[in-house]
Design a protein around this nucleic acid. Structure first.
Length: 311
DNA sequence: CTCCAGGGATGAT
DNA sequence: ATCATCCATGGA
């Protein structure tokens, strides 16, 4: 391990059927940064270093913050295992996927990818900023927000910034948010932060709503439409059936599932029927595969050489 | 340089 | 209900 600093707690967690790298780089969470052989990030407000060695997670947390995990009577081990959703029955989930060539290829490519349990506000805020942005830039905006507004935490010699709470964003201004390169998204993030901070939007209480009601509540927030609502339900509310349709998934459905000329509304109906109770997992596998896997010859995305489009 | 991105709100058919 | 347009920004 690379953080050879005094007063660190070392934790080992048995994590079979788990791929840390795929999980953190699949576009569901945006703040983990590669450091040495592992990743540095926060779980809630607690800074964490995590590295995978075969079926074991090697964790380092500052001794001073290890008791911060105790709020809900859990120790650090249980909190981290819960965050990475090591209790999800991944084999059963994958077995519930439809048996078609596109899904099978994605399932093979994404083995060990888990949908983690993110803090609700952090997830909601991140996806409000995600509109018409590439994953790399969402990560950049997340970093800017955390560095400007988040509280700094020590992890060894390193400083890690927690994601700013809604109240902190709410007390900023649109122009201040725009300095984090949010563009037109700043207004939506500010207004939603104010609703959450005031308690008018009670993200924790919404856990008890049905998926239908939860989606409707989320979509009332500025900057939250069907796609973002589904992402938040999937990544922060454990609604594993939620099926976000972004430009990548829409492309997969239209090109690979032969749904060329039907409305987005009917795409949603098809997805719900075809991918089943763990549709959100299937969706994440299709997304990561489409974005990351090498493409067969002739199907590459266009590349540009000296300003000239080539195939 | 051009292209495009984990979209949403708004207003016109 | 479906469609067009605008909204900012910067990585690739």
């Amino acid at each position: 391990l690379i953080l050879k600093i005094e007063k660190m707690h070392l934790i080992e967690i048995h994590a079979p059927d788990f791929d840390l790298e795929k999980t953190l780089h699949s576009g569901q969470v945006f703040h983990w940064e590669k450091v040495g052989a592992g990743f540095v990030g926060t779980i809630g407000d607690v800074p964490v270093y995590v590295e995978q060695k075969n079926a074991t997670l090697l964790i380092e947390v500052a001794a001073a913050s290890s008791r911060c995990f105790g709020e809900h009577g859990q120790d650090a081990h249980a909190t981290i295992a819960h965050y990475f959703a090591l209790d999800h029955p991944l084999a059963k989930i994958c077995a519930s996927f439809p048996n078609d060539p596109v899904m099978n290829a994605a399932r093979d490519f994404c083995s060990g990818l888990r949908i983690i349990r993110q803090p609700k506000w952090e997830c909601l805020a991140s996806f409000i900023t995600s509109s018409m942005k590439q994953v790399a830039h969402i990560r950049q905006m997340s970093r800017a927000l955390r560095q400007r507004f988040g509280s700094p935490k020590k992890l060894g010699q390193r400083i890690v910034h927690a994601f700013p709470p809604a109240a902190r964003i709410a007390s900023s201004s649109e122009s201040e948010l725009r300095t984090c390169a949010l563009g037109y998204r700043a207004k939506n993030l500010l207004k939603t932060a104010q609703l959450v901070a005031s308690g008018e939007a009670d993200l924790e209480a919404w856990s008890r709503l049905s998926t239908l009601e939860l989606g409707a509540s989320l979509r009332q927030l500025p900057g939250v439409g069907p796609k973002v609502a589904n992402c938040v339900m999937l990544f922060a509310y454990e609604r594993l059936e939620a099926f976000p349709i972004d430009v990548w998934i829409e492309r997969v459905l239209r090109e690979r599932y032969r749904k060329r000329r039907i409305s987005v509304a009917k795409l949603r109906v098809f997805a719900k029927n075809h991918f089943g109770e763990h549709g959100g997992y299937a969706q994440q596998y299709l997304f990561h595969h489409a974005r990351t896997a090498p493409r067969p010859p002739g199907l590459e995305r266009r590349q540009f050489v000296r300003g000239t489009a080539v195939r």
